[in-house]
Amino acid sequence: MSPRLYRTLQALILAALGIFLLQKIWSGTLYWYISNRFLALTVFAAIGFLVLAQNILPRRRPAAAPVDPDHHDHDHDHGEVAPAWGLLIVALPVLLGLLIPAKPLGAAAIANKGVNTSAPLAASREAVRLDIAPTDRNILDWIRAVNYAADPVSLNGLPADVIGFVYHDSRLGNDEFLAARFTLNCCVADASALGVVVQWPGAASLAGNSWVRVRGAVEASTLDGQRIPFIKAESVESVAEPSQPYLYP
């Protein structure tokens, strides 16, 4: 491969990475992958990739020109640095991102990650907010409430109105399901799932991983020794996937 072609391909892949990131930012799906606190860094990287791409793209200039950018590579590890398959691997994030349908983590990931309420709880130790109106609390708020309330029984009977995806946990009964959410600190690599147990006669007919809005009365309960809220549902309606699928502790 000629150095000029190699440089052109490099520039194209860098530009593709930059556009890929910008597209994720623009469509809001960036938050399917990382926490919103990395937005500024991702914007920087996207612009950085585009600036690099623009700068290394070979100019229309005879190859013998003294300031040809390829010339500088000779003080560099040449030959070894340039296998073509390396280009392909760096293009892999874009290729996989285009080929495999993008989805936020869902019920399939719980099978491996498990339901873990203690991790997101510890991370939010500093910011326990129990002063939110009961119907405004999300699943994470309810998990906090049953774990930090001086007397969990005092929560019993409060009205809940939460959104989560359906997870059929094998530890639950036939008329129960887990309304689950993922929480993450930095990126999906550290995500952990938590949920509330919902009792609903039609639980078995709900498709796993579908998003539902659950309304009903809360009870403090436990599941395998973890304190977990229990909702006796009055209504379970299916809703569209929220634009921000994860919760941040």
């Binding site: 994030p93 996989l96 349908p101 993008a102 989805k103 983590l105 869902g106 999906v188 690599a189």
Partner: peptide, 8 residues
Amino acid sequence: STFTTIFL
């Protein structure tokens, strides 16, 4: 899909 999401 999960694998791709974590990788990305």
